[in-house]
Write a protein that binds this DNA or RNA. Sequence first.
DNA 1: CGCGTAGTTGAAGGACTTCAACACGTGTGG
DNA 2: CCACACGTGTTGAAGTCCTTCAACTACGCG
Lengths: 253, 253
Amino acid sequence: MTLASLVGARPSALIHRLSHYLRLTPDEMQAIERMSGPERRLAPGMPLIEQNGPVDSLFVVQHGWLHSSVRLPSGGRQILRFHYTGDLIGTSSIAWSQAAATLTAVSDCIVTPVPKVALGQVFGRGGRIGALLFAVAKAEDVAMADRLTSIGRMDAIQRLSTLILDITARLRATAGGVVDTIELPLTQMDLGDALGLTKVHVNRTFREMEERGMIARNGKRLTILNEAALVSFTGFVDRYVEIATDWLPAAAA
Amino acid sequence: MTLASLVGARPSALIHRLSHYLRLTPDEMQAIERMSGPERRLAPGMPLIEQNGPVDSLFVVQHGWLHSSVRLPSGGRQILRFHYTGDLIGTSSIAWSQAAATLTAVSDCIVTPVPKVALGQVFGRGGRIGALLFAVAKAEDVAMADRLTSIGRMDAIQRLSTLILDITARLRATAGGVVDTIELPLTQMDLGDALGLTKVHVNRTFREMEERGMIARNGKRLTILNEAALVSFTGFVDRYVEIATDWLPAAAA
DNA sequence: CGCGTAGTTGAAGGACTTCAACACGTGTGG
DNA sequence: CCACACGTGTTGAAGTCCTTCAACTACGCG
């Protein structure tokens, strides 16, 4: 009898994610599995949580990806970040009972709810999981700081480049092998809202990147032609490949 | 014999901060106190941690404030956020052994180091502290998302306004009463680097805000003339006044 | 007193926005 | 089944906000 058969249809993507950084014990896996409720499916464009709406649980992204965004009084929108398979999302509900942002499915998604109390218990029981979740949260934090830097101090080409590199890196993590062509279900308006640009200028920026031979486009497919150049051009760093775990407390016997 | 006399000269500002959200038990206070090493003082402008430098500890801000920033290959700088009394900072060292950002004192500061391993033990022993630290980290996260939104989608006056409101709100937390005049030790270049603007334009924006009767300046002193108007104008939300704690595990008996 | 940093202002230039129009694909109701 | 609406992508022209460059002032400190 496998663990998966005990607790659900498939092992949680969160376990898979954390296992990337740490060899989890069966106890730890079970603790993570037990946090999650039944699966919920989302079609592209569907909202999972609405800004200012009530929330009392988080979610684990089991499949697909989403983004979180904020609407401004002026009518504008800012996309804050993208969430991928294995992410623990909706975490603003941890600090407040109202959602700070809207969560929207980008691709077809499967998510499982994690009641706040269940997360509290994981921290309460001690061990390494809470600490590791903290570390992952801090890594996400630095990734958002990178985006902040990109928007605050880079021009349109660099902004778009960093975002393409970021998305590519994250999608690779689940895809497995090294991919240089990605399927981008985002509209140019989405990209603009993520980069602090207008959709018009995103379009022009795409064109210029093509003309410069940096990328190739084919419908929604996008190919990076010279990744090393893009990386050095933007100073991009993948914040997820590695996380230090030497400081974690010992695993329970 | 008081707790403070047992473990150090003064109770940790981190205890004070967390007590704002939760009534801590003596055990919890002691656990927090024991994390910290000896005090270290910084004069304004002094670096605490250098970007890409080695780091193996975090710090608690016991007094004063700092900012974290990133230098770009192009020579520019982006200030990512400001850190105030009671903050746990340098947390990128949790995920990596190299610092992701530079930490610089803004005012006279006192900080105490927290070895990564000591933090790991706090998580490891379980209870509420780890969970609460996670919640606070997530609140900071939302605050940074607010700044991202500000830089991505607002004009110079709104950006500067949100930053002024943010700093004022945070300084009040330690100052006690409601203050509408703050001492700003930041240069206009600092402000520009925080807002994604040039120092020249920060200057012009200050002037226009004065002309519009939004603020008054006197050297480094800055007075907000109509705070309610600024708040509704920018949609500013103070992310620190309140944090939900209903989901935390029970305190140890 | 001289030097360096910070603040201030003007003039010119540039990156991005705004407005507008059109092409294209897709779904939907008459 | 076609007409039409609608969202998305694309391109041009004009305008604006912010930057860049440059000069000058003010202030603190050796």
